[in-house]
Design a protein around this nucleic acid. Structure first.
Lengths: 110, 110
DNA sequence: GCATTACTTCTACATTTTAGAACAAATTAC
DNA sequence: GTAATTTGTTCTAAAATGTAGAAGTAATGC
């Protein structure tokens, strides 16, 4: 099968979280960002699994930070979106946007 | 596991295609709509599998049309989005939107 | 050291996405 | 009418994604 270059739902949310968090993105903050912003519960296991897969695909890059002086403050694994990851987000947005053009659906529900 | 009420990527595109197509939505046109609008190749098998799953979940409803008088024009299985499906689209859009708020990413690529 | 805290990795499954082959029903050509 | 052709759907099987929770690791505080 040809490698699809489209993002899954959760991959998409995680990339957006990384973009928002900039240099503060690691497992816990990513999960928090999605829970509070997208109003959706996620497990840390899910977050890491998806980040690992996206690192293999080249959508994100991770590197170790230093330990912090809080109790339990061990070193974190930070993540950043790569240009390739950003391109994937853009492709996804364009696809959704062009499929949405002219539809009036986001009316007022909530 | 609790049934997640979030749409997968492809489910999302298919629901948008159904909304656009209104009463002309069946396997072939749905595929065409996604290929031309979202600029993405999809197989019919993928379209039907996803439509079937979404019918089970109550996001779409299908019904048979009559044969048409073209060569090979056998009867079609038409699909419509249900209110539940429309609600799922709205939830998905809200999640993406709130994750995107304030990010400037759709700059100019393409 | 031992308990506690913050964080990551591992394990195991469920669900979604995917392609292509097989099947079915209609039309046309002969 | 029956074989070939066309439109459309269903079936099958596998890969990719999504998910939760248990286990593991490194730090601090006592």
């Amino acid at each position: 099968m040809l490698r699809p270059c489209y993002l899954g739902e959760f991959e998409h949310l995680i990339l957006l979280a990384l973009m928002r968090l900039e240099d503060r993105a690691y497992g816990v903050t990513v999960r928090q960002e999605i829970e509070s912003r997208a109003n959706r519960e996620v497990s840390l296991g899910a977050v890491y699994a998806t980040l690992d897969r996206m690192e293999i695909k080249g959508y994100v890059k991770s590197f170790r930070g230093d330990p912090t002086p809080e109790r339990g403050g061990r070193s974190k694994r930070f993540f950043r979106v790569t240009p390739k990851g950003a391109a994937a987000v853009n492709r996804t947005h364009r696809a959704i946007e062009s499929m949405t053009q002219g539809l009036q659906l986001l009316g007022s529900s909530s």
